[in-house]
Nucleic acid binder design. Structure first.
Length: 659
DNA sequence: GTTTAGGATTCG
């Protein structure tokens, strides 16, 4: 056989599997596949690609189903494909990022300076699992299609490429690994279903693992729950309730109990308190919001899907009896018992947690032996210890109150200024007059204007140049005179950093350390009033060549001692032999959450809330609290009258699986 | 051979 000629197997799909025999025809292959970096506007092509992103098919506002698929191949080029079809079956059956697809008759067109692929007459597709080692069997609705040994090789090569270049691991998560606030893709089995109201459907699903946090139970009208009541009850400690909204409702309603599903971009969030109940226990909610952002949607997986096969094996292996009598935390009454001896039933997960020994881990000093707290109380300071105890209590209970500003030089601690505090400072500054002589220097270009409102505020923005050249906004540091907070925050989203300044005889200067000296992203950087010796903005010249606009470098150039955001908390630790109050003062290591960002992030605050909830679970007996392994140092503090020993936590972090 | 949507999370 000449190299130009190869055998093409034409597989004809019949209704009865047994008669499906490949017909062996000797023809010249007629399909050529265009690499994704060589697509030309206006052409109709055949392509292969690995799925980088996809939206499962959904009903568009027009007449068709729509699926958005973004492909990549070895050329590293990306192609967004808009696939439409009246017939759901003809759209590619994609289950996962990394799946491999082959599209025939894809039209290439231009949209907003980029090319995109669109379905055209006769469009057809094959989809293959991307997982290395799984059989190469195409998913397609086509009754007849070609698949040569070259095709086989192309799929294999793309699988290997995709395994190294396209990651989907971040979104595929088991229920036992969920975090309090996140979006993820869940592979699960449907065990129950109920229509809650016109705009939402409740899905009860499980994946055989137990979520580490208590989760909500959605109320529904009696008699509306579809599914085997006995089975649902048996799995009650392993299922989660998902509310599905809007455009996903129709599909959710059509689902048969027992099917395997992948739910894309499922949202977990914390409901911190339920005032109508007496408990104050935060718990998780699961929502599949309306819309198709991030591929949000539901897809039924076939029984022969490799992930489903694995899930089925796992579900079969779950010891249901072990989870049967686990108390549901949400149903627990508040228990004020302080006893360390607990005979409560522990779930297998809790047991696992106990066997893992600790909810916090040491980053050093593992060689030290554990000292009981009663022994520490008898010793003089300074000393250091490794301890193992439970967190009986912590202060402040309102976590945002734990954020302080710490000066590394004079060690003073101060509250984080409120936005209203510096609003007034900035308002006063806005009445001052910018000096035109300080505009447009070798260091920066300046733009000045007057606001149209009654105030007629004079605003000047100075764009700091890099070695005489202006950079892209996201790399550019700017200084602003006469700006108000809302303007400054808006600018901080666009530029590398914003420094509020004012004109003075010496040049542009930092007006007041009561306001941030630098706003970068979501973080407001403050300087220590006692320790800083302010210099003029001209001193930024020393940084220009490196364009190193880090807060530390900028502060140093301007004579500022930057204050650090820290968590300051008091932990009351108890190991059964005694209790000890220890300080935690930490920038970002302990919680793995930067103290500088938490005040401006709801998600980070919720994550921290959940971590504290895990470390010190309300409503549980202390016997059920997790152990904390900590490294602490004792030190002497002299008050007016007496000397006191204090304790601080060092070199300790919350265990990774809690974060 | 039209339109749909054109990635970029959240009302619940």
């Amino acid at each position: 056989m000449s190299p130009n000629e190869s055998t093409v197997y034409v597989y004809v799909k019949y209704n009865t599997v047994s008669s499906a025999e490949p017909m062996c025809l000797s023809v010249t292959p007629k399909y050529t596949y265009t690499p994704l970096n060589q697509l030309k506007h206006g052409s109709v092509v055949n392509v292969y690609g690995a799925v980088k992103f996809f939206k499962p098919p959904y009903q568009s506002r027009g007449t068709d189903y729509c699926s958005v698929v973004i492909l990549m191949d070895q050329s590293n080029a990306k192609l967004t494909c808009m696939l439409f079809s009246v017939n759901l079956d003809t759209l590619p059956v994609i289950y996962k990022i990394g799946d491999i697809v082959r599209f025939h008759r894809l039209k290439i067109q231009q949209y907003k300076n980029e090319i995109q692929g669109v379905t055209t007459v006769g469009f057809s597709s094959l989809t293959f699992e991307g997982t290395l080692g799984t059989p190469i069997i195409p998913r397609t609705s086509s009754k007849i299609y070609t698949f040569s040994s070259d095709d086989q090789k192309t799929v294999e090569a793309l699988r290997i490429w995709a395994a190294n270049h396209i990651s989907s691991s971040g979104t595929m998560i088991k229920l036992s690994d969920i975090k309090p606030v996140q979006y993820f893709d869940l592979t699960c089995q449907l065990v129950g279903k109920a229509e809650v109201d016109g705009s939402s459907v409740l899905l009860k699903v499980w994946d055989g693992t137990k979520p580490p946090f208590p989760s909500w139970k959605v109320l529904f009208e009696e008699g509306t729950l579809e599914g085997d009541a006995g089975h649902i009850n048996q799995l009650k400690n392993l299922t989660i309730d998902i509310l599905v909204y809007d455009n996903h409702v129709a599909l959710a309603k059509s689902l048969k109990v027992g099917v395997f599903l992948r739910i894309f971009s499922l949202h977990t969030k914390i409901q911190p308190e339920t005032p109508e109940k007496q408990t104050n226990i935060p718990h998780l909610e699961f929502h599949l919001h309306g819309g198709t952002c991030y591929g949000r949607g539901i897809k039924v997986l076939p029984e022969d899907n490799s992930d489903v096969e694995e899930l089925k094996r796992f579900l079969d292996s779950v010891d249901l009896a072990a989870y049967q009598h686990v108390k549901n935390l949400c149903d627990l009454e508040i228990d004020s018992s302080n006893s360390f001896s607990s005979q409560d039933v522990v779930s297998p997960c809790d047991l696992e947690r106990c066997q893992q020994l600790s909810a916090t881990v040491l980053t050093d000093h593992q060689y030290l032996e554990t000292t009981p707290l009663n022994a520490i109380l008898k010793h003089d300071a300074p000393q250091h210890y490794r301890i193992r105890a439970k967190l009986r209590n912590y202060e402040p209970q309102k976590l945002y109150q734990s954020i302080k500003l710490h000066c590394p030089k004079c060690h003073s601690l101060q509250e984080v200024p409120l936005e209203s505090d510096f609003e007034s400072v900035l308002q006063n500054l806005a009445t001052e007059c910018p000096d035109p002589k300080l505009q447009n220097t070798s260091l920066y270009n300046s733009e000045a204007w007057t606001t149209q409102d009654q105030q007629e505020r004079k605003i000047v923005i100075h764009f700091v140049k890099n070695d005489g050249i202006l950079q892209a906004p996201e790399d550019t540091l700017i200084m602003i005179e006469g700006g108000i907070p809302s303007e400054i925050f808006r600018l901080s989203k666009k530029f590398k950093g914003v420094i509020p300044v004012k004109s003075s005889q010496e040049g542009l200067i930092i007006p007041d350390l009561a306001i941030p000296f630098l706003i970068q992203g979501k973080t407001w950087h403050y300087g220590c009033k006692q320790c800083s010796k302010l210099k003029t903005m001209q001193n930024l010249n020393s940084l220009v060549k490196e364009a190193s606009w880090t807060p530390v470098c900028i502060a140093q150039a301007l004579g500022i001692v930057p204050l650090q955001y820290v968590f300051v908390m008091i932990f009351t630790l108890d190991d059964g032999t005694g209790t000890l109050k220890v300080y935690l003062m930490d920038c970002e290591n302990f919680f793995q959450i930067p103290a500088s960002e938490i005040l401006n992030s709801d998600n980070l605050q919720k994550n921290m809330e959940m971590i504290m909830y895990m470390l010190c679970p309300p409503g549980k007996k202390i016997g059920e609290y997790p152990w904390l392994e900590c490294f602490i140092k004792s030190y002497n503090v002299r008050n007016e009258a007496e000397q006191e020993i204090c304790y601080r936590i060092f070199d300790t972090v919350v265990a990774e699986d809690l974060i």
